[in-house]
Amino acid sequence: MFTVAESVTIDRSVDEVFAFFTEGRAQWDESVVSEELTSPPPVGVGSTLHTRMRAVGREFSFEWRVTAYEPGSRMAVTSTSGIMPTSSELMFADANGATLVKVRIEAEPTGMMRLAQGMIAGEVRSTLETSLAKAKRILEQG
C-alpha cells in the first residue's frame, strides 16, 4: 500500500473551491478522461461515480462510492472496482480568505503491480501535483 498527500492554497473562497473540486474531477485532474454520477443527484454519502482514467499510457475504469461528504470541508471516495483498491480524500479549510486544499490518495497495488508500487506511487504524486497546479491556475484566473 502507498499513500500520496499533496496540498495547495488557492486564492478563492472555500465554497467556490469545494464546488470546483467536487463537481467533477475531469475539469482539474490530469488523469481523468471522464467522470459521471451513476446514482441520483445530489452527491452525498453513498453516491456512486464512474471514472475513466489514463495512466502510463493506458485507460482504466473505476467505480467509486462517496464515503464522506461535508460541504465546504471534506469529500472522500473509495473504489468499488478498478485496477487496484484506492481511496481519495479532499479536505478544504479557510486560509485567511484563500482556501487550503489537502488531497490524500491511498492505493494498494495487487498481483504483479506490487512490483511496480514505487513507480505507480511516483506517477500518482506527479499527476496530483500537476492537477493541483492546474486547479489553482483555473480558479485564480477565473
Rank of each mutant, 00 (worst) to 15 (best):
residue 45 V to N: 02
residue 46 G to M: 01
residue 46 G to K: 00
residue 46 G to S: 00
residue 46 G to T: 01
residue 46 G to H: 01
residue 46 G to L: 01
residue 46 G to R: 03
residue 46 G to V: 00
residue 46 G to Y: 02
residue 47 S to Q: 01
residue 47 S to D: 04
residue 48 T to K: 08
residue 48 T to L: 09
residue 48 T to P: 01
residue 48 T to E: 13
residue 49 L to K: 06
residue 49 L to N: 02
residue 50 H to P: 03
residue 51 T to Q: 05
residue 51 T to P: 02
residue 51 T to G: 07
residue 52 R to G: 06
residue 52 R to H: 08
residue 53 M to E: 14
residue 53 M to T: 15
residue 53 M to P: 00
residue 53 M to C: 11
residue 54 R to E: 14
residue 54 R to V: 13
residue 54 R to A: 10
residue 54 R to H: 12
residue 56 V to W: 11
residue 56 V to N: 14
residue 56 V to G: 12
residue 56 V to I: 15
residue 57 G to A: 08
residue 57 G to F: 03
residue 58 R to S: 14
residue 58 R to T: 14
residue 58 R to M: 15
residue 58 R to N: 13
residue 58 R to E: 15
residue 58 R to F: 15
residue 58 R to W: 11
residue 58 R to V: 15
residue 58 R to L: 14
residue 59 E to I: 12
residue 60 F to D: 02
residue 60 F to V: 04
residue 60 F to P: 00
residue 60 F to K: 03
residue 61 S to E: 15
residue 61 S to Q: 12
residue 61 S to L: 12
residue 61 S to I: 11
residue 62 F to C: 14
residue 63 E to N: 13
residue 63 E to P: 02
residue 64 W to S: 02
residue 64 W to V: 05
residue 64 W to H: 09
residue 64 W to R: 03
residue 65 R to P: 03
residue 65 R to G: 04
residue 65 R to Q: 15
residue 65 R to N: 14
residue 65 R to C: 07
residue 66 V to K: 05
residue 67 T to V: 12
residue 67 T to A: 07
residue 67 T to E: 06
residue 67 T to G: 08
residue 67 T to K: 08
residue 68 A to M: 11
residue 68 A to V: 11
residue 68 A to T: 14
residue 69 Y to M: 13
residue 69 Y to I: 14
residue 69 Y to D: 07
residue 69 Y to T: 13
residue 70 E to S: 10
residue 70 E to A: 14
residue 70 E to R: 12
residue 70 E to I: 07
residue 70 E to G: 05
residue 71 P to M: 12
residue 71 P to Y: 11
residue 71 P to A: 10
residue 71 P to F: 10
residue 71 P to W: 08
residue 71 P to N: 11
residue 72 G to T: 05
residue 72 G to E: 04
residue 72 G to Q: 07
residue 73 S to E: 13
residue 73 S to V: 13
residue 73 S to K: 11
residue 74 R to G: 00
residue 74 R to K: 13
residue 74 R to F: 02
residue 74 R to M: 06
residue 75 M to N: 05
residue 75 M to G: 01
residue 76 A to F: 06
residue 76 A to R: 03
residue 76 A to M: 09
residue 76 A to T: 07
residue 76 A to G: 10
residue 77 V to S: 08
residue 77 V to Q: 11
residue 77 V to H: 07
residue 77 V to A: 14
residue 77 V to Y: 05
residue 78 T to P: 06
residue 78 T to R: 05
residue 78 T to A: 11
residue 78 T to N: 10
residue 79 S to P: 01
residue 79 S to M: 05
residue 79 S to C: 07
residue 80 T to V: 09
residue 81 S to D: 13
residue 81 S to E: 15
residue 82 G to W: 04
residue 82 G to T: 02
residue 82 G to V: 01
residue 82 G to N: 04
residue 83 I to Q: 05
residue 83 I to H: 03
residue 83 I to Y: 03
residue 85 P to R: 10
residue 85 P to G: 06
residue 85 P to Q: 04
residue 86 T to K: 01
residue 86 T to R: 01
